[in-house]
Amino acid sequence: MDRRTFLAKSAAFLLGGLFGSGTPVSAELFPPAANPPRIALIIDDIGFNLKRAERFLDAEIPITFSVLPRVCWSVESAIALHARGHEIMLHQPMEPFSTEVDPGPGAIFVADRPECIHQVVAENIATLPHVIGVNNHMGSRYTQQPQKMGQALHAVRNRGLFFVDSVTTWHSTAYACARQMGMSTIRRDLFLDNRREVASVMRQMNRLRNLAHKHGSAIGIGHPRPDTAEGIMRFLDTPESRDVAFVYISQMIDRL
């Protein structure tokens, strides 16, 4: 299903034309809004298992998939998900605080030389097809270092891509650095699945909806887990999902 179809379905939800399995819903119950609050969903950690990513296609809403570099299904996942109309980002691994946690191949570290950081990020971008933006994977240590973030972001900016701060630490400087560099940038509002339970994911989706109503838009990040996909789809079957519009992350950034 291509992007136009997804957006048409999102508009149909807002107009109250469909509900759940296709039962008509009264337009009086869900009146159309001129500028409905917007939600962008990012699913991180794509690249290890394409089938887990494909579960999210059943939601039939715009979703941005962030793909890890240099893992077994990175390239195939990017190609397949883009072919279904979705946006693709690079999920750039960055150094965490814990030395016991491996951020994975293609990672950058605080101790790396500037030229090494630039080369690694540039190569990660080049190896993934259809990449239009970047967000950080882990990086609780790395993103707290403004100078190191600037070195990484130069490679992103030089290729005309936007950056999404995953906010893996509340002390992250990534968003502020990107703004100072004049980049298109934004940061996530909440994670959907810190608790791996369908009911918890549904609660987080409701929190995301409330944030969208309060601020006009909200960004949620999830992971390719069965409970996450199920929680999102169950939320879409509730009346609460009808008064927001689901959009791609690039559409959120365009309005900054």
Score class of each variant (00 low, 15 high):
Ile108Met: 09
Ala107Val: 14
Val101His: 08
Glu100Trp: 04
Pro96His: 09
Gly104Thr: 13
Arg84Phe: 02
Thr99Ile: 12
Phe97Ala: 09
Pro96Ala: 08
Cys72Pro: 01
Ser66Thr: 06
Trp73Glu: 10
Val75Thr: 08
Phe109Trp: 15
His91Asp: 06
Asp102Glu: 13
Phe109Pro: 13
His86Tyr: 02
Gly104Lys: 08
Asp102Lys: 07
Asp102Phe: 15
Ala80Thr: 09
Met94Trp: 12
Ile88Glu: 04
Glu87Ser: 03
Arg84Ser: 05
Pro103Tyr: 11
His86Phe: 00
Ser98Asp: 14
Cys72Asp: 11
Ser66Asn: 03
Ser98Trp: 12
Gly106Trp: 14
Ile88Thr: 04
Pro103Arg: 08
Ala80Asn: 05
Pro105Gln: 08
Gly85Leu: 03
His82Gln: 06
Met89Ala: 01
Ala80Leu: 03
Leu81Thr: 02
Met89Leu: 10
Gln92Trp: 01
Ile79Met: 13
Val75Ile: 09
Gly104Ser: 11
His86Gly: 01
Ala107Ile: 14
Arg84Tyr: 05
Ala83Trp: 03
Pro96Val: 10
Ala107Phe: 15
His91Phe: 07
Phe109Leu: 12
Gln92Asp: 00
Leu68Ile: 13
Glu76Leu: 00
Gly85Gln: 05
Phe109Asn: 10
Glu100Asn: 06
His86Asn: 04
Val75Ser: 02
Pro93Ala: 14
Arg84Trp: 02
Glu87Arg: 07
Ser98Cys: 13
Ala80Arg: 13
Glu95Asp: 12
Ile88Val: 08
Ala83His: 11
Pro96Lys: 08
Phe109Gly: 09
Pro105Cys: 14
Val71Ser: 02
Gly85Lys: 05
Ser77Thr: 05
Ser77Asn: 04
Ala80Glu: 07
Ser74Gly: 07
Arg70Thr: 07
Val71Tyr: 02
Glu95Trp: 12
Pro93Asn: 08
His82Ser: 05
Asp102Ile: 15
Met94Glu: 12
His82Arg: 07
Val101Trp: 10
Gly85Phe: 01
His82Tyr: 01
Ile79Val: 13
Ala107His: 09
Trp73Pro: 00
Arg70Ile: 12
His86Glu: 02
Val71Pro: 00
Pro69Lys: 01
His91Thr: 07
Pro103Ser: 11
Leu68Trp: 09
Ser98Glu: 11
Gly85Ser: 05
Ala78Asn: 03
Asp102Gly: 13
Cys72Thr: 12
Pro103Thr: 10
Ser66Met: 05
Glu100Tyr: 04
Val67Glu: 00
Pro69Glu: 03
Ala78Arg: 02
Gly106Cys: 14
Ile108Phe: 12
